[in-house]
Computed example of a mutant assay.
Amino acid sequence: MSRDTHPGVQCPHCQSHLALVPVPGNPASGNSAVPPIPVVPITPKEEWQPPPVAEVLAVYAGRVKDSATASRGAAKVRESLNRARSAGTQRRAAQKTARRTPKSA
């Protein structure tokens, strides 16, 4: 019997044929000499949740805002964003000129 005409069960995802195997210890299958497989209790998986925001921010509760450090950090972020923006503009311009085909005369 070819694999294509096999009348067995198919996997709903990949449509491959699945073989039906008798369960050990099942009296209907005639394999009662094989001891049954012990059943392991299935414990539900715990969903991971992030800690509460108040708990995370409690570390920073007693700190004073240092405006000089904050302004230096903001300036660094602005400079980095501007560099990235100009690099992207230059890259797009280079791609646009590379895509243009020279017009034949």
Rank of each mutant, 00 (worst) to 15 (best):
Ser2Tyr: 10
Thr5Trp: 06
Gly8Val: 10
Gln10Phe: 12
Gln10Lys: 15
Pro12Gly: 09
His13Arg: 13
Cys14Asp: 14
Gln15Asn: 13
Gln15Pro: 00
Ser16Phe: 06
Leu18Trp: 01
Ala19Lys: 11
Ala19His: 03
Leu20Cys: 03
Pro22Asp: 04
Pro22Asn: 04
Pro22Arg: 02
Pro24Glu: 02
Pro24Ala: 01
Ser29Leu: 02
Asn31Gln: 14
Asn31Pro: 00
Ser32Gln: 14
Pro35His: 03
Pro36Ala: 10
Pro36Gly: 04
Ile37Phe: 09
Ile37His: 07
Pro38Ile: 04
Val39Asn: 04
Pro41Ile: 01
Pro44Lys: 08
Glu47Ile: 12
Glu47Arg: 09
Trp48Met: 06
Pro51Ile: 03
Pro51Glu: 07
Pro52Ile: 01
Ala54Asp: 15
Glu55Tyr: 02
Glu55Pro: 00
Val56Leu: 07
Leu57Met: 15
Ala58Phe: 06
Tyr60Trp: 08
Tyr60Pro: 00
Ala61Asn: 08
Arg63Leu: 14
Asp66Ala: 08
Asp66Phe: 04
Ser67Asp: 14
Ala68Trp: 03
Ala70Trp: 12
Arg72Ile: 11
Gly73Glu: 15
Ala74Thr: 14
Ala75Cys: 04
Ala75His: 09
Lys76Ala: 15
Lys76Gly: 13
Val77Asp: 15
Val77Thr: 13
Val77Asn: 12
Arg78Gly: 08
Glu79Met: 06
Glu79Ile: 00
Ser80Asn: 11
Arg85His: 09
Ser86Gln: 15
Ser86Asn: 11
Gly88Ser: 12
Arg91Asp: 13
Arg91Leu: 14
Arg92Thr: 12
Ala93Glu: 15
Ala93Pro: 05
Ala94His: 09
Gln95Pro: 01
Lys96Gln: 15
Thr97Gly: 01
Ala98Gln: 08
Ala98Tyr: 07
Arg99Cys: 07
Arg100Glu: 12
Arg100Pro: 00
Lys103Ile: 06
Ser104Ala: 11
